[in-house]
Every structure is written in structure tokens, then in C-alpha cells.
Design a protein around this nucleic acid. Sequence first.
DNA 1: CCAGCCATCTTTGCGCCGTCAACTTCTTTC
DNA 2: GAAAGAAGTTGACGGCGCAAAGATGGCTGG
Lengths: 190, 190
Amino acid sequence: MTEKPYHHGNLRAALLGAAEAELAEAGVEGFSLRSVARRAGVSHAAPKHHFGDTTGLLTALAAEGFQAFVAAQTAREEAAGAHPSERLLASGLGYVDFACARPALFRLIFTSRRIDESSDTLVEAGSAAYLHLAGGVAAAGGREGDIAAFWAMAHGLADLMMSGRLAQFADLPPDERDAALVAILRRALP
Amino acid sequence: MTEKPYHHGNLRAALLGAAEAELAEAGVEGFSLRSVARRAGVSHAAPKHHFGDTTGLLTALAAEGFQAFVAAQTAREEAAGAHPSERLLASGLGYVDFACARPALFRLIFTSRRIDESSDTLVEAGSAAYLHLAGGVAAAGGREGDIAAFWAMAHGLADLMMSGRLAQFADLPPDERDAALVAILRRALP
DNA sequence: CCAGCCATCTTTGCGCCGTCAACTTCTTTC
DNA sequence: GAAAGAAGTTGACGGCGCAAAGATGGCTGG
């Protein structure tokens, strides 16, 4: 019955979980390190040892976010057929999925000034995400310029969907929504 | 020799200017109302009377931002020819121009949770921006679905360019850069 | 087995921040 | 020309990020 052991045991993971919850509720702007600590049931200075400061925590969260971001794309790809173009389109749907499901994390990753862009783990995770996309485009017969085109289209759709600016699609039933998005994504295909 | 008159005279405008400078330097995350007041040379509580709170100030700034955003697009359109499709493509370049020239304002407008989305002036300014885009797409022979496609492409390019993720284009000389962007935007044309 | 080391967490303190309330100064209006 | 109200200031409050120093307890070498 260790009610409140002095040592948490797995505080790092608990803080990351609390941080994402905090991020989802308060957004990057309202993010508070002390609030995260309260969520995890520890003192307000406890995060320091694991992450240094707010930037450190958010950077670690962003690195994890990139992995989940790629996973969302992969999940869609695996549900698609074997045709490379279809898989790339599915990947685009996964891109949008992630943005809509975890908007605060999406924003943190792509537009926050509160993360350390030079962090090794973050750079690595971000590069992996880019390589995943570039690989998909290449498999679909795309060349260098096609990467930017498909990326921009998928990213634009994701960002607008996430911020509720394409309500016309958001209100559709899932399969129709996906079909509408694919019809647009297809324009950016190689 | 009114060294420091008690009444500023045009504090509202001065605060808006200081706020954009603050935004550009500190970003939405690091934005500080007190710092804005210091920039304008007034007491820390002076903004209250004009904008209420931080959200009020940022919301007013965002509304102005939307107008500048449309202006950036219009400037490009007027430099383009008379052909509707070319004008729409030029508008897309203006979209990207604005994002790159005033990234913090772009972020404030599109992805900040720190503005009052229900503000009348903001909604009006945002609607005007949307209608401008929709009008351009319609003039180019586009239908309902084409709006989302072109918007997403322009927005995605703008967001990625702004955050330095398309360095391949950013490093190009202006005309080549524009040509590369137009080549991509063209895919989203009706 | 136990002594000490070290990672982990808490407490305390500092300055900055946003917001509010009360006050002062100026302008406008009747 | 005085009252009324608009425009700024001052002071206070709690919350925040961060740093330093203390408390706790797991772990390792003897």
C-alpha cells in the first residue's frame, strides 16, 4: 500500500503522458510545466531532473509525436492495397488522421517555437518522418519535385482540417470524407 | 515640449504595432502583454482599456493580419496578367509571400488558440480572406471542390515554406523560386 | 550486512507575467 | 466652467518558469 512513495518509479513516462494531456487541453500557448507536474502528482520541480525545462519536455514529446505521426500513416498504408500510388494516397489520409486526432501534438511538431529544433532525437524522428514520405513518393514513381507537391497538399489538408476550416469534409461520414480527401490528394500525385 | 503627456493620443495603434514586433520576436508562445506595453512606453495596465486582455489584443492584431494577408495576395494578382488562372496562381504566391514575410502573424491567424474566434471583426476579416480565395478559384473556372484543393495546396506550401521545411525552394533566386512554386500550385488548379 | 554514493524528488526563493481594483489626469460636453 | 467620462498609472494578487539546496531511498562495493 505504498500510498505516496518518494520515488515515482516511472516518472518520465508519466510526465510525457501528462504533458500530452495538458497540451491537448491547454494548447502549446497555455502549456504549463507546473500543471503537468500536478497532473502526474509530483512537485512542480520534479520534471527538471528528467527534461531540464519546458522546452526539454516539449521536445521529447515532439519526438514521440513524430513516431506516432509516422505510425498513423503506416496504419493507413497497410490497410490499402499494394499499388504504390494507392498506398501514397492512404499515407496522406494517415497524415490528416493524425492532425485531426491529436491537433495539439501536430501543432507542436510543425509550428511551435517552444521546442529545441537542434535536439538529436527530435531531428532523427523528424528525418524519419520525412524519409517515410519521400519513400512513398518515390515508390509511386515520383521525383524530387513531386515530394514537395504531395507533402504540401497533404500538409495543407491536414492543417486546414485540424483547425476546422474544411467543415464541409469534417461533417461527412468517414468513407465519403476519405474519398473526398483522396480526390484532392490525387492531384498532387506524380 | 510635452515630454510625456499623460494621454498617449494614439495608443491603440501604437500597441498594435508594438504587439506585432513582440510577436515577431517572441512568437505567440512567448508573447507578453507587459513587454508590449514597455515597447509602447506605457504602463503595464494601459492595454486593458483598449483591448481588455491579451486575447483581445491578439484578436485585434489577427483581424488586421487577415487584411494584410489578402493584400499580399492582391499585390501579386495585380502584377500578373489578366488570365484568371494565372491570377489565381499569383494569388497563391502572395499567400506564400505573406507566410514567409510575417510568419508569426501567419501562425497567429491560422493556428493560435490565443485569439477569440467568435470576435465579429475577426470573423469578418477571415471571411473576406476566404471569399477572396473562393472568388479567385471561381473566376478560374473552379467549382466547390476546387476551392479546398487550391487552398490546401497554397496553405501547405506556405506553412512548410514558413517553417523552413522546403529549403530547396527558399534558397532559390526569387524568380526561380516563384516558378517552382507555381509549377506545384498548378497541380491544384481547376 | 551496511555504509556511502548518487539518482530522484521536495522545498524554498526569485523575478516575470496577466489580471483586477482604485486612483489620477486629461478631454469633452452641456 | 463644472460634471462626466475616457485614458493611463499604481499597487496588489496568485500563477508561472527556473535555480539552488535539502530530503529520501535505491544501489553498489566492501
